[in-house]
Simulated assay, not measured.
Amino acid sequence: DLTMSIGKITLRVPRTREGDFSPTVFERYARCDQALVLSMLEMVINGVSTRKVTNIVEQLCGESVSKSFVSSLTQKLDPIVNEWSRRPLNFTYFPYVFVDAMYIKVREDKQVVSKAVYIATAITEDNKRTILGLKVDHVESYESWLGFFEELKSRGLQSPKLIISDAHSGLQKAITRAFIGTCWQRCNVHFKRNIFEKLPKKDSADARVMIKRIFEAVTVEDMRHFKEELMNKYKDEPKYERALSTLDEGFEDTIQYMQHPMKIRVFIRSTNALERLNQEVRRRENVIRIFPNTQSAFRLIGAVLMQYEEQYRKKKSLVK
């Protein structure tokens, strides 16, 4: 029996004494049409649960498939995702690299544990987005970040001009250790959010406007000038002390993007694009909720990232 999208058909398969004959119509020992198998895989990658996939297939062709069968099909992705994750990166130079981590739940030794998913994306020399790789590891730490960077370097990644990320201390240390001569750009959006959180909730509207003005300036000189105006205006008010301290401490790391061409600045001042990608991964992860093991997490997230890398490849340059 061969299950196809139009239903189940019965095939009479010729057998030879040597057993070396195999029809080209379908794979040997296959019970489902290859097109139907690919459709089921596509549904899983796009965030459809295995239970819903079985219901869709039953409505589509009148035949049921088990959840375990759908789950086993996803293992076909392993060699594809593994090959993609190990592909060489020395074919071009990536001047701008973005890194971030998100957390997922995985079953391990009969327990549910939290694991970090490290994702790295980049902008190429011809100003197109791409995805460099991912890693599923334990909690976010200096050692884990350094290991991730060493993997990327072993595949041919050269020291970029700028690495954009949030202000995780272990991540900053790993960047300094792994990439000589690379500057670190602290995410502009995260930084402003950190400052606003430390402002008084009442009567701070003017201060908020002044902070926004700093990061909307078109020259470094204006940014520093507006910053000094803010610091001088509120330096004697204790309720602004924490916010001003945060601004002063992280200011230089947050304006590194200003040293690069104006047309690219809007794309390299924050990790917003990478966070949107993380949200797409999260949307599919929410369907599963708890991954059965680390390999299944790597498989699904890798397949999602491969889809988006293909989309990035087809898009035009960020800079016109």
Rank of each mutant, 00 (worst) to 15 (best):
A243R: 12
K263Q: 10
P292T: 12
L247T: 08
D222E: 14
V189W: 09
F196W: 08
E285V: 15
K198D: 05
H260W: 09
L300F: 06
P292N: 10
H225V: 01
A205N: 08
H190V: 05
K201L: 12
N232Y: 11
E216H: 05
Q259D: 15
I211V: 14
A205Y: 10
D236P: 11
N272W: 02
Q295W: 02
L305N: 09
A205G: 04
A273W: 00
N293P: 06
K233N: 04
D236M: 13
M231F: 00
R269S: 06
R313P: 09
H260I: 01
P261E: 08
R299P: 05
A207L: 07
P200G: 08
V266Q: 13
C187K: 07
A217Y: 02
V304K: 15
I214V: 14
R186D: 01
E309G: 12
I290P: 12
K201E: 13
A207I: 05
K201Y: 07
I255E: 09
L230S: 04
L199W: 00
A205I: 11
C187S: 04
L247E: 07
Q256P: 06
V218T: 14
R213F: 00
K233C: 01
Y234L: 10
K239L: 04
S204C: 08
N194T: 02
R208L: 04
V189Q: 09
H190R: 10
E249D: 13
Q295R: 09
Y257T: 04
T294C: 08
M258W: 01
F267T: 00
K198G: 03
N293I: 05
N232A: 14
M223V: 03
T246P: 04
D248N: 14
R282T: 15
E228P: 05
Q185V: 03
Q307P: 02
A243I: 11
A297K: 07
R242V: 04
R276G: 07
D248T: 13
K212H: 09
V281W: 03
L277Q: 13
F251W: 05
F298A: 15
R313H: 13
E285Y: 01
D248F: 00
A243S: 14
K227P: 02
P238M: 06
Q295K: 12
D206Y: 07
Q307C: 09
R282H: 09
F298L: 15
A243T: 11
M262T: 14
V304W: 06
E216V: 03
L230W: 05
M210Y: 09
M231K: 05
